[in-house]
Amino acid sequence: MMWTRKRTPAVLGTLCAGVLVLAGCGDDSSDEPFKGQKADDIAAKAVAATDKAPSVHMKGTAHVKGGNTVRIDVRLDDKGNCAGTMSGDGAKAELLRSGGDLLIKGDRTFWTNSARGSGGNSGDGKKLADQLAGKWVKSPANGADAGLCDKKGFLASMDQDKTERQGMRRGGTEEVGGEDAVLLKKQKGGKQLRMHVATEGKPYILKTETKGSEPNSVTFDEYGKKVEVQQPAEDEIVDPANMKA
Protein backbone atom coordinates (compact mmCIF):
# COMPACT_ATOMS: atom_id res chain seq x y z
CA MET A 1 0.00 0.00 0.00
CA MET A 2 1.46 3.35 -1.03
CA TRP A 3 0.69 6.89 0.04
CA THR A 4 0.09 8.69 -3.27
CA ARG A 5 -1.49 11.96 -4.25
CA LYS A 6 -4.06 10.08 -6.32
CA ARG A 7 -5.33 8.42 -3.13
CA THR A 8 -6.12 11.70 -1.36
CA PRO A 9 -9.88 11.66 -2.18
CA ALA A 10 -10.14 8.08 -0.90
CA VAL A 11 -8.34 9.04 2.30
CA LEU A 12 -10.71 11.95 2.80
CA GLY A 13 -13.63 9.60 2.37
CA THR A 14 -12.19 7.25 4.96
CA LEU A 15 -11.56 10.01 7.47
CA CYS A 16 -14.99 11.49 6.93
CA ALA A 17 -16.85 8.16 7.05
CA GLY A 18 -17.91 8.62 10.63
CA VAL A 19 -19.18 12.10 9.83
CA LEU A 20 -20.98 11.26 6.60
CA VAL A 21 -23.59 9.16 8.34
CA LEU A 22 -23.98 11.47 11.28
CA ALA A 23 -25.41 14.58 9.66
CA GLY A 24 -28.83 13.28 10.69
CA CYS A 25 -29.98 10.69 13.20
CA GLY A 26 -32.89 8.81 14.76
CA ASP A 27 -34.24 8.13 18.24
CA ASP A 28 -33.24 10.09 21.29
CA SER A 29 -33.94 10.72 24.95
CA SER A 30 -34.87 14.02 26.58
CA ASP A 31 -32.10 13.95 29.21
CA GLU A 32 -29.73 16.88 29.64
CA PRO A 33 -27.82 18.17 27.77
CA PHE A 34 -29.85 19.20 24.70
CA LYS A 35 -33.01 18.49 26.68
CA GLY A 36 -35.99 17.73 24.48
CA GLN A 37 -33.92 17.58 21.29
CA LYS A 38 -33.66 14.49 19.15
CA ALA A 39 -30.36 13.16 17.90
CA ASP A 40 -31.09 14.24 14.32
CA ASP A 41 -31.64 17.81 15.51
CA ILE A 42 -28.41 17.81 17.53
CA ALA A 43 -26.38 16.39 14.64
CA ALA A 44 -27.85 18.82 12.11
CA LYS A 45 -27.02 21.75 14.40
CA ALA A 46 -23.50 20.41 14.91
CA VAL A 47 -22.85 20.11 11.18
CA ALA A 48 -24.24 23.61 10.56
CA ALA A 49 -22.20 25.17 13.39
CA THR A 50 -19.02 23.46 12.27
CA ASP A 51 -19.58 24.54 8.68
CA LYS A 52 -20.06 28.18 9.73
CA ALA A 53 -17.02 28.27 12.01
CA PRO A 54 -14.41 30.65 10.57
CA SER A 55 -11.60 28.17 11.24
CA VAL A 56 -10.85 24.79 12.77
CA HIS A 57 -7.99 22.42 13.59
CA MET A 58 -8.56 18.85 12.37
CA LYS A 59 -6.37 15.96 13.44
CA GLY A 60 -7.16 12.45 12.27
CA THR A 61 -5.94 8.90 11.86
CA ALA A 62 -7.35 6.33 9.46
CA HIS A 63 -6.46 2.66 9.03
CA VAL A 64 -7.03 1.76 5.39
CA LYS A 65 -6.98 -1.44 3.39
CA GLY A 66 -3.54 -2.97 3.11
CA GLY A 67 -2.60 -2.13 6.67
CA ASN A 68 -1.48 1.42 6.02
CA THR A 69 -2.13 4.14 8.59
CA VAL A 70 -2.81 7.63 7.26
CA ARG A 71 -2.59 10.71 9.47
CA ILE A 72 -3.57 14.32 8.90
CA ASP A 73 -3.03 17.34 11.12
CA VAL A 74 -4.23 20.57 9.53
CA ARG A 75 -5.46 24.00 10.55
CA LEU A 76 -7.68 25.67 7.99
CA ASP A 77 -10.15 28.50 7.62
CA ASP A 78 -12.89 29.67 5.28
CA LYS A 79 -10.56 32.17 3.58
CA GLY A 80 -8.43 29.51 1.97
CA ASN A 81 -5.61 29.51 4.52
CA CYS A 82 -4.20 26.17 5.60
CA ALA A 83 -1.14 24.77 7.37
CA GLY A 84 -0.45 21.22 8.44
CA THR A 85 0.92 17.79 7.62
CA MET A 86 -0.13 14.47 6.12
CA SER A 87 1.67 11.15 6.39
CA GLY A 88 1.33 7.49 5.58
CA ASP A 89 3.28 4.45 4.38
CA GLY A 90 6.54 5.94 5.64
CA ALA A 91 6.00 9.21 3.77
CA LYS A 92 5.34 12.68 5.12
CA ALA A 93 4.51 16.05 3.62
CA GLU A 94 3.84 19.56 4.88
CA LEU A 95 0.86 21.48 3.48
CA LEU A 96 0.57 25.23 3.14
CA ARG A 97 -1.89 27.54 1.45
CA SER A 98 -2.51 31.25 1.70
CA GLY A 99 -5.69 31.63 -0.32
CA GLY A 100 -4.16 30.49 -3.62
CA ASP A 101 -2.42 27.38 -4.88
CA LEU A 102 -1.60 24.63 -2.41
CA LEU A 103 2.08 24.18 -1.58
CA ILE A 104 3.43 20.74 -0.67
CA LYS A 105 6.84 19.96 0.81
CA GLY A 106 7.23 16.19 0.78
CA ASP A 107 10.10 13.95 1.76
CA ARG A 108 11.80 11.55 -0.65
CA THR A 109 9.39 8.72 0.13
CA PHE A 110 6.40 10.95 -0.55
CA TRP A 111 7.58 11.86 -4.04
CA THR A 112 8.82 8.34 -4.78
CA ASN A 113 5.39 6.97 -3.87
CA SER A 114 3.73 9.70 -5.92
CA ALA A 115 5.65 8.63 -9.00
CA ARG A 116 4.80 4.96 -8.46
CA GLY A 117 1.14 5.79 -7.89
CA SER A 118 1.12 7.60 -11.23
CA GLY A 119 2.44 4.53 -13.03
CA GLY A 120 6.14 5.35 -12.91
CA ASN A 121 8.97 2.96 -12.11
CA SER A 122 11.67 3.16 -9.44
CA GLY A 123 13.82 5.28 -11.72
CA ASP A 124 11.02 7.79 -12.17
CA GLY A 125 10.48 7.86 -8.42
CA LYS A 126 14.15 8.53 -7.72
CA LYS A 127 14.26 11.30 -10.32
CA LEU A 128 11.15 12.98 -8.93
CA ALA A 129 12.45 12.68 -5.37
CA ASP A 130 15.80 14.18 -6.42
CA GLN A 131 14.01 17.15 -7.98
CA LEU A 132 11.34 17.84 -5.38
CA ALA A 133 12.18 16.38 -1.96
CA GLY A 134 12.36 19.07 0.69
CA LYS A 135 11.11 21.82 -1.64
CA TRP A 136 7.81 23.64 -1.69
CA VAL A 137 5.95 22.40 -4.78
CA LYS A 138 2.97 24.22 -6.23
CA SER A 139 -0.20 22.17 -6.61
CA PRO A 140 -3.40 23.50 -8.25
CA ALA A 141 -6.07 24.79 -5.87
CA ASN A 142 -8.54 22.39 -7.52
CA GLY A 143 -6.20 19.39 -7.43
CA ALA A 144 -6.71 16.20 -5.42
CA ASP A 145 -4.38 17.22 -2.60
CA ALA A 146 -6.19 20.52 -2.11
CA GLY A 147 -9.14 18.68 -0.54
CA LEU A 148 -7.17 18.44 2.69
CA CYS A 149 -6.94 22.24 2.78
CA ASP A 150 -10.50 23.02 1.68
CA LYS A 151 -12.61 23.61 4.79
CA LYS A 152 -15.91 23.99 2.96
CA GLY A 153 -15.27 21.01 0.70
CA PHE A 154 -14.10 18.77 3.51
CA LEU A 155 -17.11 19.52 5.68
CA ALA A 156 -19.55 19.33 2.76
CA SER A 157 -18.57 15.66 2.40
CA MET A 158 -20.35 15.05 5.72
CA ASP A 159 -23.71 15.46 4.10
CA GLN A 160 -23.43 13.49 0.87
CA ASP A 161 -25.17 10.20 1.66
CA LYS A 162 -28.59 11.09 3.06
CA THR A 163 -29.67 7.43 3.10
CA GLU A 164 -27.30 6.83 6.01
CA ARG A 165 -29.18 9.10 8.39
CA GLN A 166 -31.38 6.54 10.10
CA GLY A 167 -31.05 4.61 13.35
CA MET A 168 -28.86 6.92 15.42
CA ARG A 169 -29.19 7.09 19.19
CA ARG A 170 -27.84 9.21 21.98
CA GLY A 171 -25.26 8.05 24.45
CA GLY A 172 -24.01 9.76 27.57
CA THR A 173 -21.80 12.78 28.05
CA GLU A 174 -18.05 12.35 27.61
CA GLU A 175 -15.05 14.66 27.76
CA VAL A 176 -13.22 15.44 24.52
CA GLY A 177 -10.20 17.71 24.67
CA GLY A 178 -11.25 19.10 28.01
CA GLU A 179 -14.79 19.89 26.83
CA ASP A 180 -18.02 18.06 27.64
CA ALA A 181 -19.69 16.45 24.65
CA VAL A 182 -22.83 14.44 24.04
CA LEU A 183 -22.25 11.16 22.24
CA LEU A 184 -24.30 10.14 19.19
CA LYS A 185 -23.74 6.62 17.89
CA LYS A 186 -24.91 4.05 15.39
CA GLN A 187 -24.13 0.41 14.73
CA LYS A 188 -23.72 -0.45 11.06
CA GLY A 189 -22.67 -3.99 10.28
CA GLY A 190 -19.44 -4.61 12.15
CA LYS A 191 -18.75 -0.92 12.64
CA GLN A 192 -19.83 1.60 15.22
CA LEU A 193 -20.07 5.22 14.11
CA ARG A 194 -19.72 7.90 16.76
CA MET A 195 -19.97 11.68 16.93
CA HIS A 196 -19.21 13.90 19.91
CA VAL A 197 -20.97 17.27 20.00
CA ALA A 198 -20.03 20.13 22.34
CA THR A 199 -22.63 20.73 25.05
CA GLU A 200 -21.56 24.28 25.91
CA GLY A 201 -21.38 27.26 23.61
CA LYS A 202 -21.94 26.49 19.95
CA PRO A 203 -22.71 22.82 19.23
CA TYR A 204 -19.48 22.16 17.36
CA ILE A 205 -18.38 18.68 16.36
CA LEU A 206 -15.48 17.76 18.66
CA LYS A 207 -14.75 14.25 17.45
CA THR A 208 -15.91 11.60 15.00
CA GLU A 209 -14.96 7.93 15.08
CA THR A 210 -15.50 4.70 13.24
CA LYS A 211 -14.75 1.62 15.31
CA GLY A 212 -14.23 -1.68 13.52
CA SER A 213 -11.77 -3.47 11.25
CA GLU A 214 -10.63 -0.19 9.65
CA PRO A 215 -10.99 2.34 12.47
CA ASN A 216 -10.65 6.07 12.00
CA SER A 217 -10.87 9.09 14.24
CA VAL A 218 -10.91 12.85 13.63
CA THR A 219 -10.83 15.53 16.32
CA PHE A 220 -11.98 19.12 15.77
CA ASP A 221 -10.74 21.94 18.00
CA GLU A 222 -9.34 25.48 18.06
CA TYR A 223 -12.53 26.80 16.48
CA GLY A 224 -12.20 30.44 15.44
CA LYS A 225 -8.45 30.57 16.02
CA LYS A 226 -6.44 32.41 13.38
CA VAL A 227 -4.57 30.14 10.98
CA GLU A 228 -0.95 31.28 10.84
CA VAL A 229 0.66 30.80 7.43
CA GLN A 230 4.32 31.57 6.75
CA GLN A 231 4.38 31.96 2.98
CA PRO A 232 7.73 30.85 1.46
CA ALA A 233 9.65 33.22 -0.79
CA GLU A 234 9.01 32.78 -4.51
CA ASP A 235 12.51 31.41 -5.10
CA GLU A 236 11.73 28.60 -2.63
CA ILE A 237 8.72 27.40 -4.63
CA VAL A 238 8.86 24.92 -7.50
CA ASP A 239 6.20 25.02 -10.22
CA PRO A 240 6.01 21.59 -11.92
CA ALA A 241 4.76 23.30 -15.09
CA ASN A 242 8.20 24.89 -15.45
CA MET A 243 10.20 21.75 -14.76
CA LYS A 244 12.29 20.17 -17.50
CA ALA A 245 11.43 16.59 -18.41
Rank of each mutant, 00 (worst) to 15 (best):
A44R: 15
K45H: 13
A46F: 13
A46G: 12
V47C: 09
A48M: 05
A49E: 07
A49G: 06
A49N: 06
A49Y: 07
T50Q: 11
T50I: 12
D51E: 14
D51W: 03
D51F: 05
K52R: 15
K52N: 15
K52I: 06
K52Y: 08
K52C: 09
A53C: 10
P54S: 14
P54T: 13
S55V: 12
S55E: 09
S55H: 10
V56H: 08
H57G: 11
M58F: 10
K59S: 13
K59Q: 13
K59L: 08
G60L: 01
G60I: 00
A62S: 12
H63T: 10
V64D: 02
K65C: 08
K65A: 14
G67M: 14
N68D: 09
T69M: 13
R71F: 13
R71D: 14
R71I: 04
I72Q: 14
I72H: 11
I72D: 08
D73H: 11
D73V: 11
D73K: 12
V74C: 07
L76P: 03
D77E: 12
K79Q: 15
K79E: 15
K79T: 14
G80A: 13
G80L: 11
N81T: 12
C82P: 08
C82T: 06
A83L: 07
G84N: 08
G84E: 06
T85C: 09
T85N: 14
T85S: 15
S87V: 02
G88I: 02
D89W: 05
D89Y: 06
A91T: 05
A91D: 05
K92M: 05
K92L: 06
A93W: 02
L95A: 09
L95Y: 09
L96S: 06
S98P: 05
G99R: 08
G99W: 08
G99I: 10
G100E: 15
D101K: 12
L102V: 09
L102R: 01
I104H: 03
I104G: 02
K105P: 00
D107M: 06
T109D: 10
W111I: 00
T112N: 08
N113A: 12
N113K: 04
S114L: 02
G117V: 02
S118I: 01
G119S: 04
G119P: 00
G119H: 01
G120H: 00
S122I: 07
G123P: 00
D124P: 01
G125P: 02
K127C: 05
K127Y: 06
L128P: 00
L128I: 07
L128Y: 02
L128W: 01
A129Y: 10
D130T: 12
D130G: 11
Q131W: 05
L132V: 07
A133P: 06
A133D: 10
G134L: 09
K135T: 04
K135Q: 12
W136C: 06
V137Q: 03
K138G: 07
